[in-house]
Amino acid sequence: MTGSTVRLRPPRHRVERRAVGWWTVRAVLGAAPVLAALAAAYAVAGSTRPWSGPALVVTVLAAAGYAAVVPSWRYAVHRWEATTEAVYASSGWFVREWRVAPMSRIQTVDRVRGPLQQMFGLATVTVTTASAHGPVRLVGLDAEVAARTAEQLTELVRQTPGDAT
């Protein structure tokens, strides 16, 4: 540890607490096909047991560990903020990431709600710029907050002069 840290303050708003539930469900669903395949192999084809047994155990442990730790870790890291000048968000768990996009360069503001997100009453706001690598994603916002934010951002972008490139 050299004591050198990134001198960025965390964005002002946390994401919705329900996002932890969403991330957990998503993690479990993501692991389910692999687990099902391994379990089927273990149950049906007896000859695969020497390797499918251990593989099953390892996968279950990894998935359980991921589902238990990562969503809360994400919740601790994920934050967002929108000022009149820029959109600022931090995300990630193993790799932390801070992203800033200035209002004058924003091209589109999208609001997306997947089926799982709808179940939890969540939404994602994606703000894109002219760079293919520059979108700022505000993940796991309360659906209403997201709608309001997207609306405000769109209005701000409309008022801010800029050529978006």
């Binding site: 540890m1 050299t2 004591g3 050198s4 840290t5 990134v6 960025l8 990630g92 193993f94 790799v95 932390r96 990431e97 801070w98 992203r99 800033v100 996009a101 200035p102 360069r105 710029t129 002219a130 760079s131 690598h133 520059g134 700022v136 490139t165």
Partner: peptide
């Protein structure tokens, strides 16, 4: 037209 700062857990330990 935007900044992106990335830091993995290992980079953080190294102060990068």
């Amino acid at each position: 037209i935007g900044w992106q700062v990335r830091q993995s857990v290992l980079q953080r330990r190294l102060g990068l």
